[in-house]
């Protein structure tokens, strides 16, 4: 089982590295969106500090959703997705592999970039650490839930907007808990509850999302 997943991860990472511009676009989008808010809201530090968690989290959420289209679309177009469906290995593991590869390419870089943005918003260091931890715990759930949305809207016209319409409502709990954790840290309250909830949601998504995404793939390619 793990061999299949490793193979899929390796393959997807290789493909992603070949088209590095796609990967960079999602990250540049994250930085630009997060940097627009101070221009829109004004440079006043106290205000920026209060909106920082929300802005960075929403930007991360939108950036990872933007990159969802690539998860299955290219394989669907050249037929390798059908081969994966016919493969002897359970489809769920293949989907987990693709989700991990997608997260490594679009989720993890957001965590690495978050401190850079936090400086723009003058976020306190301890809040910054909690921000990064919450992003590490939160972005995989975003990718897993996004995988279901991407699989459902495979090969459908206007699938970009449709995927976001399907997936954004399901992102709301992760967003609430993620920003809640950073607000708690900034407010000096213990953040354990929020982070535990985030981790619980990740475990829940990890258990069910691949199976649901696999079922969605079978529906899309029947």
């Amino acid at each position: 089982m793990f061999r299949v997943m490793r193979v899929v991860i390796g393959r997807d990472l290789l493909l992603a590295m070949r088209r590095r511009s796609d990967v960079a676009n999602a990250l540049l989008f994250f930085i630009i969106v997060a940097s627009l808010f101070p221009l829109g809201v004004g440079p006043e530090p106290n205000l920026l500090r209060t909106i920082a968690p929300g802005v960075i989290w929403v930007a991360a959420l939108l950036a990872s959703m933007l990159a969802l289209g690539r998860m299955f679309a290219s394989d669907y177009a050249d037929g390798t997705l059908e081969q994966m469906l016919l493969a002897s290995a359970p489809l769920g593991w293949i989907v987990v592999g693709k989700a991990i590869a997608h997260w490594l390419v679009s989720g993890l870089p957001l965590v690495v970039l978050a401190p850079v943005l936090a400086l723009q918003f003058d976020l306190a260091t301890d809040a910054l650490v909690v921000m990064m931890v919450s992003l590490v715990l939160g972005t995989p759930s975003l990718t897993l839930i996004g995988a279901i949305g991407a699989a459902l809207t495979l090969g459908v016209r206007g699938s970009g907007v449709l995927t976001s319409l399907l997936v954004l409502p399901l992102y709301v709990p992760v967003l609430i808990m993620g920003t809640g954790a950073v607000d708690a840290a900034a407010g000096g309250v213990t953040v354990q509850a929020h982070l535990l909830l985030l981790a619980a949601f990740l475990v829940f998504a990890g258990a069910f999302a691949p199976w649901a995404a696999a079922a969605a793939l079978r529906i899309s390619l029947d």
Partner: peptide
């Protein structure tokens, strides 16, 4: 989702999931 997929059978199944 139901409206976006042309084939009614697939639209039903995708929307059902």
């Amino acid at each position: 989702l139901t409206a976006a997929i042309d084939d009614p059978r697939r639209a039903d199944r995708a929307a059902a999931l």
